[in-house]
Amino acid sequence: MEKPGHAPEIAGGMASPSDYIALLKPRVMSLVVFTALVGLVRAPDHVHPVIAFTAILCIAVGAGAAGALNMWWDADIDAIMSRTRKRPIPAGRVTPKEALAFGMTLACFSVGVLGLLVNALSAALLAFTIFFYVVIYTMWLKRSTSQNIVIGGLAGALPPMVAWAAASGSVSLESVLLVAIIFFWTPPHFWALALYRADDYARAGVPMLPVTAGPDETRRQILLYTLFLAPLAFVPVLLGYAGIAYAIVSAVTGAGMIWLAVAVYRQRTGDEAVRAARRLFGFSILYLFLLFATLLVEAVIPGI
């Protein structure tokens, strides 16, 4: 595992609070917090509000730590890619050493507090999640294989299980299902983005699937994963973990995902191909949000 070449060190002291917030990847963090909240609420055991708040806070901080460490390691390629070159490190507002110290401090804090105030299992799962995202995905898979998103997606899928363990002290089939839904959602979501950002990834030397296998194979893989994802997302209904509201939302939005994935598969050239990929990328975010929001509402308002 070879350390990438980072941008030259800067004097420091140029960063504002917003730069450190940017290091946390707040948009990613918000998704992590939301899916973790669903895992916490869906867990079978009642949890004290203070413990619940502590667990969610630690998971959020842990996600932010992983984001900061990701930006520290990827500063060299972030400086090349158009969508990331304005991030705090390549823009010269935060030094790599500052980002590393910031990320490591947050990682140790989040895991330590979760272990001391909640339970050891959730802390161990959070530590594994951070390790997997930073070391397995960022440092190894991202630059070495086109399956980086497939395998690395596990890190982004684990927060509901971490929260479930925080509430119950254990894991269960339902928490595994929540992880599986996010895990299989990740490839079509990110590959849709990669289809219209392929030049960026190629310029940075990141072997995303459109770069290594071409856009047509990427479209085929998007369709295959989506055809698996839609029925998988309906499994909680079949196992009695979700109600009629979730069944309707899962069926309708799953059909929408498949329809958009088919459109991506069929539209292969010109601006229409780019628009199809953008539509799938945007809708995939809404899709995951609606699934988990419905699970949350069903837990808060039983019988709907």
Score class of each variant (00 low, 15 high):
residue 209 L to F: 15
residue 159 P to R: 02
residue 78 D to V: 06
residue 180 A to Y: 07
residue 13 G to T: 09
residue 122 S to Y: 00
residue 192 A to K: 03
residue 262 V to F: 07
residue 138 T to S: 06
residue 15 A to M: 02
residue 123 A to G: 04
residue 255 A to E: 08
residue 26 P to E: 13
residue 237 V to W: 02
residue 53 F to E: 15
residue 271 D to G: 14
residue 71 M to R: 11
residue 300 V to E: 01
residue 31 L to H: 03
residue 206 V to M: 09
residue 146 S to P: 10
residue 123 A to N: 05
residue 59 I to V: 12
residue 234 F to W: 10
residue 172 S to K: 07
residue 115 G to K: 05
residue 185 W to K: 03
residue 122 S to G: 08
residue 52 A to S: 11
residue 258 I to E: 01
residue 91 A to F: 11
residue 259 W to L: 13
residue 137 Y to V: 05
residue 175 S to T: 10
residue 115 G to I: 14
residue 267 Q to W: 04
residue 95 T to Q: 07
residue 61 V to C: 06
residue 226 T to M: 05
residue 172 S to R: 08
residue 173 L to I: 12
residue 268 R to T: 14
residue 83 R to N: 12
residue 165 A to W: 00
residue 257 M to R: 02
residue 281 F to P: 02
residue 121 L to P: 13
residue 282 G to P: 01
residue 105 T to Q: 05
residue 100 L to D: 05
residue 8 P to S: 09
residue 213 A to S: 11
residue 13 G to R: 06
residue 46 H to Y: 07
residue 259 W to V: 14
residue 97 K to C: 08
residue 2 E to N: 13
residue 119 N to C: 12
residue 262 V to P: 03
residue 194 A to Q: 01
residue 229 L to T: 00
residue 203 R to N: 13
residue 205 G to H: 13
residue 148 N to C: 09
residue 72 W to D: 10
residue 226 T to I: 03
residue 168 S to V: 10
residue 205 G to T: 08
residue 183 F to E: 08
residue 193 L to G: 01
residue 223 L to K: 08
residue 229 L to N: 01
residue 207 P to M: 09
residue 34 F to H: 05
residue 141 L to D: 03
residue 6 H to Q: 15
residue 134 V to T: 06
residue 121 L to Y: 10
residue 67 G to N: 04
residue 105 T to C: 11
residue 145 T to Y: 04
residue 21 I to Y: 15
residue 44 P to Q: 04
residue 211 V to S: 07
residue 20 Y to T: 08
residue 255 A to Y: 11
residue 222 I to N: 01
residue 68 A to R: 01
residue 84 T to A: 09
residue 171 V to A: 12
residue 26 P to K: 07
residue 158 L to W: 04
residue 239 L to T: 09
residue 191 W to G: 01
residue 79 A to I: 09
residue 21 I to A: 15
residue 271 D to Y: 13
residue 260 L to H: 06
residue 128 F to G: 04
residue 47 V to N: 03
residue 72 W to Y: 15
residue 237 V to S: 04
residue 83 R to A: 12
residue 179 V to L: 12
residue 136 I to M: 04
residue 246 Y to T: 00
residue 199 D to V: 08
residue 32 V to Y: 02
residue 58 C to V: 06
residue 114 L to H: 01
residue 259 W to K: 14
residue 304 I to V: 09
residue 100 L to F: 14
residue 136 I to A: 06
residue 158 L to Q: 02
residue 145 T to K: 00
residue 33 V to H: 02
residue 232 L to G: 02
residue 6 H to W: 14
residue 31 L to C: 13
residue 6 H to D: 13
residue 241 Y to E: 01
residue 154 L to A: 11
residue 179 V to W: 03
residue 88 P to W: 02
residue 48 H to K: 11
residue 170 S to L: 08
residue 260 L to D: 00
residue 295 L to N: 00
residue 172 S to D: 14
residue 218 T to I: 09
residue 153 G to I: 02
residue 255 A to F: 07
residue 160 P to R: 04
residue 263 A to G: 09
residue 252 V to F: 02
residue 268 R to D: 12
residue 136 I to P: 03
residue 268 R to C: 05
residue 104 M to P: 00
residue 304 I to H: 05
residue 183 F to Q: 14
residue 37 L to G: 11
residue 113 V to K: 06
residue 278 R to I: 08
residue 15 A to C: 09
residue 115 G to A: 14
residue 249 V to G: 02
residue 180 A to E: 07
residue 71 M to A: 11
residue 107 A to E: 02
residue 132 F to E: 05
residue 131 F to C: 08
residue 102 F to Y: 12
